[in-house]
Design a protein around this nucleic acid. Structure first.
Lengths: 123, 123
DNA sequence: CTGTATCCGCGAGGATACTG
DNA sequence: CAGTATCCTCGCGGATACAG
């Protein structure tokens, strides 16, 4: 907490979504239906490892963006979903998404199979 | 460009503002008046080094978010300002800023001298 | 099924010195 | 004034193995 940038709400907000897999997780949860651990782990073709998924989920939970619900069953079941704060956050993604579209057009990134894997458009 | 996340406009947008000093620079430029190199370097109490400032400015320029204008004078003068794209980006910061405020309230980060140094509120 | 526990490589970011 | 050029540190993220 020495870094005075962390006293800026804007910086804090950006940091909260800057983890490598956080946008992916958030986009998965943004449809409102709870998702299980394995569900999140498997629905990306990339090698999102268990350690990474867990660490990102823990940070999002600590930041009050998602909730973690454990069902006392065998085998264990854990579901993740957005909090009210997390839903507000996802709502802000829309204009950012639009900006990113413009950006990519201008930068002429290679032809766009953008959303065909994992990262879905936020409704 | 192997990372398929980079095909997602949202991810791309967040990456574009994720450099350590980019929000600081953008907030400095957001009032519309051009800023000189030294001006940006000095107006933070933290040790933002020349190398860091330069690299962040270069990336923002490459991403079409800011422009760099060199005046052929002695001593040299260089001014940075937001592009149209950069202004659109800064406009999106407002809701993010608001979200960050709520976040900080809930997290009870230490009492708030947030903006007293460097990072100013975006108008 | 849903996680920890280690170990490690790599690259963003930092310190310092030098320059047109 | 407005930058390069080097070198180095540090921790994020990845690979793999193990556990309740």
């Amino acid at each position: 907490m020495r870094d005075p940038r962390l006293h800026c709400p804007l910086t804090v907000a950006v940091k909260a979504i800057s983890g490598k897999w956080k946008l992916y997780i958030l986009s998965m949860l943004s449809d409102g239906t709870p998702k299980r651990y394995t569900e999140l782990l498997k629905s990306t073709c990339e090698n999102l490892t268990e350690k990474m998924l867990t660490s990102q989920l823990r940070e999002l939970e600590k930041d009050g963006i998602i909730t973690r619900k454990v069902y006392p069953e065998v085998p264990p079941r854990v579901e993740y979903m957005l909090t009210a704060s997390g839903k507000k956050l996802c709502a802000i993604f829309e204009p950012l998404y639009e900006w990113g579209m413009e950006y990519m057009k201008n930068q002429r990134h290679e032809k766009l199979p953008w959303l065909e894997m994992g990262l879905r458009e936020l409704s």
